[in-house]
């Protein structure tokens, strides 16, 4: 796999993550659960920036950025605050795995950026009720 392939895979995953965060945010009440709303909103912004950066990196690598799908399938209808937080936690757990895959398939500035994003997603899991892990993003090492 080339770095460009890895970037495209990461971008495709990021499209799905951003879509899901949008849905989760829309189902979150800023008035009733302001803390959760703030956490989801901050994550949405981070992932939007991540998607934009990935698009740039794909172009810089000579590729045409993969487009987002019209919609993505979500598991069930999440309505309670704890369900929304849990779904967001799953996104960040998956996000670390995705970024670690990009780390392995890249070097230089792309790897450094992927590492930064992996550590952000790992740390953000704690805001969503997660706990520190020994091998985030690499569960086969446990």
């Amino acid at each position: 796999m080339t770095t460009l392939d890895a970037l495209q895979e990461t971008l495709a995953a990021e499209h799905a993550t951003l879509y899901t965060y949008g849905v989760l945010g829309a189902r979150t009440s800023q008035g009733a659960t302001p803390e959760l709303y703030g956490v989801l909103d901050a994550a949405y912004r981070r992932h939007r920036s991540r998607r934009d950066q990935l698009r740039l990196m794909v172009e810089e690598a000579g590729g045409e950025p993969v487009a987002a799908a019209a919609a993505y399938e979500l598991d069930g209808r999440l309505l309670r605050a704890d369900q929304l937080a849990s779904a967001a936690l799953d996104l960040e757990v998956s996000g670390v795995q995705t970024m670690l895959a990009l780390v392995a398939q890249s070097s230089g500035t792309v790897r450094s950026w992927a590492l930064t994003e992996a550590t952000w997603s790992a740390a953000w899991q704690l805001e969503l009720g997660g706990t520190p892990q020994t091998w985030p993003g690499a569960p086969e090492l446990d």
Partner: peptide, 26 residues
């Protein structure tokens, strides 16, 4: 991680960095 010649090693070190970031946040 950024200096590793091996992508596999870089991935392992990235996971260690992520774990350290989580524990530091805690």
């Amino acid at each position: 991680c950024t200096a590793a010649a091996s992508g596999d090693l870089a991935r392992v070190l990235a996971s260690i960095a992520a774990s350290t970031a989580q524990h530091s946040a805690a």
